[in-house]
Design a protein around this nucleic acid. Structure first.
Length: 442
RNA sequence: GUCCCCAUCGUCCAGAGGCCCAGGACGUGGCCCUUUCAAGGCCAAAACACGGGUUCGAAUCCCGUUGGGGACGCCA
């Protein structure tokens, strides 16, 4: 069994999968994959009151979205099934009885408490180093409730033992629970697994991340237009470092570099601006076909999708995405920035009209429109050459004409390069928009 | 209150005694490119919490202070 790595992510289904839990799951998954080990998903639903099936589903959805697959767990099973603690109650009771029989635990008002021995309890934490507690600060804690359900300390130890977990990678908030669990391992005459307590994720105010900080459920992120590969990359580097200066990694690159020793000891602030940057960088690196698939749902929601984007106008569609891509931070933005391409009607921004559609430009604009009718080839370079030639001979500044044309064609003051835009919008639509824009001058 | 953890630029990290008058990234400011907005390139401002030790030498080791976080449930 030497060298075998078995880790687990053991959420309690009393809430959705938040970013902190997601990162813990990610670290476990990375460690398992790095060492060819096993990643177990175990549902800690011993608190029947607060657990719900919907929450289990929500957690599973979150892990799926991030691409974290498990080798053993609900719906895949494995040699240590079942993976719901609520279905393992008998094991916990038996273990509690053993401790009672050996005089290491006792009944108290219907519950069973563990008798904490004198002395001190310590363990070697892979991220914090040696940690030691005086047992006098640990009270005789309940291991089996009066309703027969185990408490966390008992179930987690029994299951980690039964499932042969070698490394417990979990949140820092469990560090003060650890001595109680170490005491249980000792009471069972078993060696505890290795522990690695990872620091918590905080909000910008350094307070524990909560809803008032914005999106804390991972499943809000796909809706907001974030790529799972960006989230994985961002989360991995929040509290962990591969050691060097590189920051942009694919999932596989993270797997090959991950070490528990690289986890830092202090809490980390969740920084949305940096997440945006990771998202942008990963979008920039996505194959266009792949990107198209991610954009589609957002276009559908905005009513801008056409089945032709799949076949007949596929190439055109991909060109539009490629043009828009450098200025998009979240996937949903393709629907916004793409309107001038995906929709025939143009919505004019009042400020843009006021700024660029000066009355004295009306005549030159109209004449340039006529030039555009016959410019060949209908390509960016040729169009630009035509405009500059026209501007020079007509005594107009090329920039003014470009700006007015941009507003006429896109309705906005900012867009990708005008000539690329015109080519993709097409000659007919461009001319039609310019014609109706004639009324906007002044 | 008790116990535990943590402490490098605003933020995330690098740094495991001399390579550091501290390096990268996000963000911020400036410049370049340029038809706008981005992207990209270049430059800049920006930190070793404080006080004691140890050492020839400390961001790195030890102690204390302060600050932040966490745990003290028949929740996990």
């Amino acid at each position: 069994m030497l060298g075998v790595v078995r880790v687990r992510f053991a959420p309690s289904p009393t809430g959705y999968l938040h970013v902190g839990g997601a990162r813990t799951a990610l670290f476990n998954w990375l460690y398992a994959r790095r060492h060819g080990g096993t990643f177990v998903l175990r549902i800690e639903d011993t608190d029947a009151e607060r657990s719900s099936w919907d929450m289990v589903q929500g957690i599973v959805d979150g892990l799926h979205w991030l691409g974290l697959d498990w080798d053993e767990g609900p719906d895949v099973n494995g040699p240590h099934a079942p993976y719901f603690q609520s279905q393992r109650l008998e094991k916990y009771r038996e273990h509690a009885q053993v401790l009672v029989r050996e005089g290491k635990a006792y009944a108290d008002e219907g519950a069973i408490r563990f008798k904490v021995p004198e002395g001190q309890t310590s363990f070697e934490d892979l991220v914090h180093g040696p940690v030691r507690f005086e047992n006098e600060h640990i009270e005789n804690f309940v291991i089996l409730r009066s309703d027969g359900h185990p408490t966390y300390h008992l179930s987690v130890v029994v299951d980690d033992l039964d499932m042969e977990i070698t490394h417990v990678v979990r949140g820092d908030d469990h560090i003060s629970n650890t001595p109680k669990q170490v005491l249980l391992y000792q009471a069972f005459r078993r060696t505890p697994p290795a522990f690695a307590h990872v620091p918590l994720i905080m909000g910008p105010d350094k307070k524990r991340l909560s809803k008032r900080h914005g999106a804390t459920s991972v499943m809000e992120y796909p809706r907001l237009g974030y790529l799972p590969e960006a989230m994985v990359n961002f989360l991995a580097l929040l509290g962990w470092s591969p050691g060097g200066d590189e920051e942009l990694f694919t999932r596989d690159e993270l797997v090959s570099r991950f070490t528990l020793e690289g986890i830092s000891g202090g809490n980390a602030v969740f920084n949305t601006e940096k997440l945006d940057w990771f998202n942008q960088q990963h979008m920039l690196r996505l194959p266009l076909d792949d990107l198209a698939a991610r954009v589609e749902p957002f276009l559908r929601d905005a009513g801008l999708w056409s089945e032709e984007f799949r076949d007949g106008r596929r190439a055109w569609f991909l060109e539009v995405l490629a043009l828009l891509r450098p200025r998009v931070k979240r996937v949903g933005q393709f629907a916004e920035d793409g309107r001038p391409f995906f929709e025939d009607a143009v919505q004019y921004e009042p400020d843009a009209v006021k700024k660029h559609m000066k009355p004295e430009l009306r005549e030159p604009f109209d004449a340039w429109r006529a030039v555009l009718m016959s410019t060949e080839p209908f390509e960016p370079a040729a169009l630009e050459a035509a405009l500059r030639r026209f501007a020079e001979s007509g005594g107009v500044k090329a920039a003014s004409l470009i700006h007015a044309t941009r507003v006429a064609v896109t309705g906005r003051a900012a867009s990708p390069g005008l000539f690329e835009v015109i080519v993709l919008v097409g000659r007919e639509r461009t001319l039609a928009r310019m014609t109706s824009a004639l009324a906007l001058f002044g």
